[in-house]
Design a binder for these strands. Sequence first.
DNA 1: GTAGGCTACA
Length: 669
Amino acid sequence: MMMKMPWRRKSRSFHLQLQGAIGTIQSPFLFLFTNYCHSSTSTLEDARFLTNNFKSASFTRLHDAIASFNHVIHMNPLPSRVHFNRFLSALVKMKQYHTVFSMSKTIELLGISHNVYSLSILINCFCHLHLVDFGFSVFGKMLKFGLEPNTVTFTTLINGLCKESKIDKAVEFFDDMVAHGYQPNVYTYSAIINGMCKFGKTNVAIGLLNGMADRGCEPNVVTYSAIIDALCKDELVGEALELFSQMRNKGVSPDVITYNSLIHGVCKLGQKNQALALMNEMVEQNISPDVYTFNVLIDALCKDGMVSEAQNTFNIMIQRGVEPNVVTYTSLIDGLCISDHFKEALALLKEMVGRNISPNVFTFNILIDTLCKKGLVSNAQIIIKIMVQRGEEPNVVNYNSLMDGYCLCKQIDKARKLFDLMVTNEIANIFSYTILINGYCKCKMIDDAKDVFVEMSHKGLVPDVVTYSTLIEGMFQAGRPQTAQELFKNMCSHGQQPNIVTFSIMINGLCSQGNLDEALTLLKKMEESQLKPNLVTYCILINGMCKAGKINDAKELFSSLFENGLQPNVHIYSAIMKGLCRQGLMDEAYKVFKDMEKVGCLPNNCCYNIIIQGFLKHEDLPKASELINEMVDNGFSADAATTELVVHLLRNNDLILRLLKVRNEGSAN
DNA sequence: GTAGGCTACA
């Protein structure tokens, strides 16, 4: 039987099936079809460029490498194994693993036999491609040939196991290696420590780090940085900084990667000033920020809606001679989309394509997602088509975003069709299922939602807290509070910890059922599980209490917000004002309305309408018309309910008409 | 010949 090339991608007919559903391509994405590459490369190289998507920077180098290889293999005598190994390891550094395989075969056919080094290189290539099992078969071959593996061989395989999250096997292999008398070096320790960190066992990793010196191996900057990065990712920045200073006290100097992890960590906690301080510190120590440093900072600024600051950082980066890459552009495009500057985002996309930086699945996904959220799902389809055309294979995230887009514009049949295709092609993941469940819930097709939920477990996919929350919310909205509560219990008994969103959905559902008591019990449960209610939870509760006529409880909860260090938003203010208006407590409602402005939370359209409706309902027409004028002056307008009230009052009482007339004449003067 | 860092979907 012929062995299948393990690294060859499975061919898929998915795009062909999908293309039928997608219409013709139109502007404004036409520029994405233009190839800005002004090269005179041959068609073969062009084809490579498109299919393998090589980075242009490494492309020329790879081209040189291939040319020189083709030259050397015709030399007489042939270069030695040592030379070929050096050449292959250069290719590994360029991440050209497949090329290494084919060239290695050629070298073999030329009659040059393998040694430990060449086989270790092959093992490393398999490991980088997440094919550690093939790495082990090469390892077996090595033993069969009577070649003795060394620490590097073991380290490579340990790293390969870690990359595939087989951390237990990695530890086992590590112990085996030690038992056979091989001394692990700092690379071996760093690999296994990093593996543990990635597996969430940072504490075990720290234990290993602390034991290293006694085992005769001093940790270096890579060992420390792996743990510092893990701590930062777990938002334990304080501990990370502590380890950072411990490392420096031991005379190990940080490098750009150490700083990047820390900067990323503090950015995630929203401490951009500390990020800038760290950046200054690194520059003082002659460690230049690189493209990763800037990318982290730019992304943090974008995510915080500070897109113009991000653009400034982008300019500084270019001034410092750091070349932006696809991640830089993608983050900025994301920032512009988040800040609702889609046109600018497209202009930047054009700029990056012009600079010969190819958008990737991330970049395209931001466009797909933004277009879908804007209700422009047909444009999102076009993006998918462009991706296929450009040789960039759309992935599950892209299809999930598109599916969500179909759901958002209520094209549930199209969403289902796409979903079924994804299931057939075995790429559907939990997100796909959750998105479809959400779609069915929003289309009030709750039974279909439930079916998809059941289908999931048949496929061996475990619904997560978001899947449960989505279906629970759907059940409440479909008027099935009983099922919703059963699902909640089910979820807890299946070991899924409800999060703030889940609790909020439950509390909201119970409140709308008029079941305030049970909602409050759940609030207690939530607080017991160390979850602090957020503004959304408070808003739901205040609404619930007001609806239940418990205005005093609502007022009490409203004041407790401040005690918990939370600043109410417009939604909270609207909720409490609505409650006060409902009780006819217009003075208090008006006081809240005025307080909002004082604390810098400007009333929006909704707030004006609530307070105006309150005054109208309680027939304080002078106050109502005063506020109507103020609202209009601030650029807001009456909503349907307010208009209806005014019209209703107009019919029954022409007093308001006269009043409004007087005001209009007054303002005309 | 071996180890560490950046971007997207509910």
